[in-house]
C-alpha cells in the first residue's frame, strides 16, 4: 500500500510538471495543446544527446553519491531545458503565432495535434524506436519503512531526487508567479488579456514567457520520466492523457491545481494497478477525466469556466 502511494507520487511528479505547462498554455493562449507531450519527449531525448556529448568531451563521471547519475546529467538537464524552450518558441513562431493572427482556438488545437505527430515522428526518425537509458548503473533501493508496516516502502535515491526537484520547481514557479513582474503579468493576462493590453503588458512577451516556462518544466518532467522509467519516442504521447486529466482535475488555468491534479492522477494510476492490472493503468486517467467532467467540470481549484 505505502509502496503504491510512493510510486504514485513519483509518476505524479512527472505528470504535475507536465500539467503545469498544459494549464499555463491553456490559460494564456487559450487552447488545449496536444503537442505538449512531445515537449516532454524532446526534453528527455535532448538531455540524452547532451549527456552523450558531455561524456564524449569530458569522459564519464562517477555517480553523485547514491544516485545512478553523475554531474553530466544535471548539466544535460540544463542544456535540454534551454533547447526544449527554444523548440517550443520555434514551433510557436512558425505555426501557432501565424494561426493566432487569424485563426480561432480550434484551429490551434488541430495544428497542435498535427505538430505533435510531426514532432514525434521527427524524433523517431532521428533517434529510432529502441528504448534508451541515461544510466545503466544498478541502484540499491533504500528501505524507508519495514515490510510489516503497511507492506513497507522502498525507494531509490533517483526517485527521491525526482520528488525533491519537483518540489523545488513548484516552489520556484510559485515565487515567480507571485513576486516577479513577468509572473504577475502572466496571471493578469490569463484572466483578462484585453485589460492586460491596455495596462501596457506586451502579450507577445507573456506568451513567450509561457512557452519557456512550460517547456522547461516539460524538459524536467521528460528527464524524470527517462530516469525513472526509460526513454521511448512514445513517452510524451503516453503521458498526454494524464497531463490533460491532471490539468482539468485541478481546474484548467490553475497552476497549483495542476500540481495537485498531477499527484492525484499519479496516485490513481498507481493504486489502480492491483485492481485492474498494469495493462489498464493508462486508462485510469481517462476514468478520472470523465468523472471530473461529469461531476465538477471546473475542477478542484477552478472558478472560471
Amino acid at each position: 500500500m505505502l509502496q503504491l502511494v510512493a510510486d504514485g507520487f513519483i509518476i505524479g511528479s512527472v505528470i504535475a510538471l507536465g500539467a503545469i505547462g498544459v494549464t499555463l498554455v491553456y490559460s494564456i493562449l487559450r487552447f488545449a495543446n496536444f503537442a505538449h507531450g512531445e515537449l516532454l519527449t524532446w526534453g528527455a531525448y535532448l538531455a540524452w544527446t547532451a549527456l552523450i556529448g558531455i561524456v564524449a568531451v569530458w569522459g564519464p563521471a562517477e555517480p553523485l553519491g547514491p544516485f545512478s547519475f553523475g554531474w553530466p546529467l544535471l548539466v544535460a538537464l540544463a542544456v535540454s531545458a534551454v533547447a526544449t524552450a527554444a523548440l517550443a518558441l520555434l514551433v510557436d513562431r512558425l505555426l501557432f503565432r501565424q494561426l493566432r493572427r487569424h485563426g480561432n482556438a480550434i484551429t490551434l488545437i488541430m495544428a497542435s495535434f498535427g505538430a505533435a505527430l510531426v514532432l514525434r515522428n521527427l524524433l523517431q526518425f532521428i533517434y529510432g524506436a529502441v528504448p534508451e537509458y541515461y544510466s545503466r548503473e544498478i541502484q540499491v533501493a533504500i528501505r524507508l519503512v519495514p515490510r510489516d508496516v503497511l507492506g513497507g516502502l522502498r525507494i531509490t535515491p533517483d526517485q527521491l531526487f525526482v520528488l525533491g526537484l519537483t518540489a523545488v520547481s513548484v516552489v520556484g514557479l510559485h515565487i515567480f508567479l507571485t513576486r516577479t513582474t513577468v509572473g504577475k503579468a502572466m496571471r493578469a493576462t490569463s484572466v483578462n488579456p484585453q485589460l492586460a493590453r491596455v495596462t501596457g503588458i506586451d502579450v507577445d512577451r507573456v506568451i513567450r514567457a509561457t512557452w519557456i516556462i512550460g517547456a522547461v518544466l516539460a524538459a524536467v518532467a521528460g528527464v524524470f520520466s527517462g530516469l525513472t522509467v526509460q526513454l521511448r519516442p512514445q513517452l510524451g504521447l503516453d503521458l498526454l492523457l494524464p497531463l490533460f486529466a491532471a490539468a482539468i482535475l485541478g481546474g484548467i488555468g490553475s497552476v497549483y491545481g495542476a500540481v495537485v491534479g498531477g499527484l492525484i492522477v499519479g496516485l490513481a494510476e498507481s493504486l489502480s494497478v492491483p485492481l485492474v492490472g498494469a495493462e489498464y493503468r493508462a486508462a485510469t486517467a481517462f476514468v478520472v477525466l470523465i468523472a471530473i467532467l461529469l461531476i465538477r467540470p471546473t475542477g478542484l481549484f477552478g472558478e472560471r469556466t
Binding site: T181, K184, R187, S190, V191, Q194, G200
Partner: peptide
C-alpha cells in the same frame, strides 16, 4: 483606458493590480 466590464484583474489584490501596472509602465 477603463473598459466597461471586466476592468480589474480579479485574481490579483488591489495592491497587485496597481503594483503590476506601475512595474509595467
Amino acid at each position: 483606458f477603463v473598459p466597461q466590464t471586466e476592468n480589474v484583474f480579479v485574481n490579483l489584490s488591489i495592491e497587485d493590480n496597481l503594483d503590476l501596472a506601475a512595474s509595467i509602465l
